[in-house]
Design a binder for these strands. Structure first.
Lengths: 120, 120
DNA sequence: CCATTATATGAATATATGTTCATACGTTTA
DNA sequence: TAAACGTATGAACATATATTCATATAATGG
């Protein structure tokens, strides 16, 4: 995968073959980092609430704040993170900014997660 | 959703209807918390690597540590979190403990996430 | 142009988190 | 039973994170 070529296989405790094989199939470091970054953004109660709300309809910042019961500033900070992770998009309408999910994909992720927690 | 019945609708900046509607469709606090908790566990490079590796084959702690290039202790701590979130399961074989994904569902979550980061 | 409204952002603070080190636990083997 | 091995865990530390407060920006209406 990386430049390393199973160089660790000889030294460690056990199962050099398994290690080599797993290494060759492992996620690239950069991909793992990005993937984790995405999940990390999803990993906050406020942000999850925001996303789930936006999966139903487009809303302005002020309304989002009202629904999740947090201050405007806090919500704005979180929306910034969500934007950065390309989880939400926005459009301006007058002095308002209307947010929505970046694509349906995000809904799927949420649904998949909900399924996991409901599944017992 | 909660016991609150749109009581905030009258006071805040804008769109009381939108707020009421969103509130009624919002995730229950506890669900949002659990969902975020799950994603939070997924939101770490080391843990993502571990999960992706385990999506390919069952491995012992020592081998996992070798593959992700971290200490046994660090990996063990992370596996504990992964267990707590029901993302991995394990079985003992002699003095070894073999870990694997808790169910195929988890692979799907990972795949969905990967699709998101690859999608541009 | 000034006041108002909606949103964004920087600084500060409290809290959470990941890794390391040392050590404990449990199983196997000598 | 003692030693060795694989794994788990508690404490400590450094770093990351979420919220709040104050304030800035941008757009609208008077």
């Amino acid at each position: 995968m990386n430049n390393s070529e199973c160089d660790v296989c000889e030294q460690l405790c056990e199962h050099p073959q398994a290690i080599c094989r797993a290494r060759s199939e492992a996620l690239a470091d950069e991909d793992a980092r990005e993937l984790a970054e995405t999940f990390k953004i999803l990993g906050d109660t406020t942000r999850v609430k925001i996303l789930q709300i936006l999966s139903r309809c487009e809303l302005c910042v002020c309304d989002i704040a009202a629904v999740v019961g947090m201050g405007q500033s806090a919500v704005s900070h979180q929306l910034r993170l969500l934007r950065g992770a390309r989880l939400v998009k926005y459009r301006k309408e007058g002095k308002m900014v209307l947010y929505s999910l970046d694509d349906d994909h995000i809904s799927m992720l949420l649904a998949q997660g909900i399924e996991h927690i409901k599944h017992r």
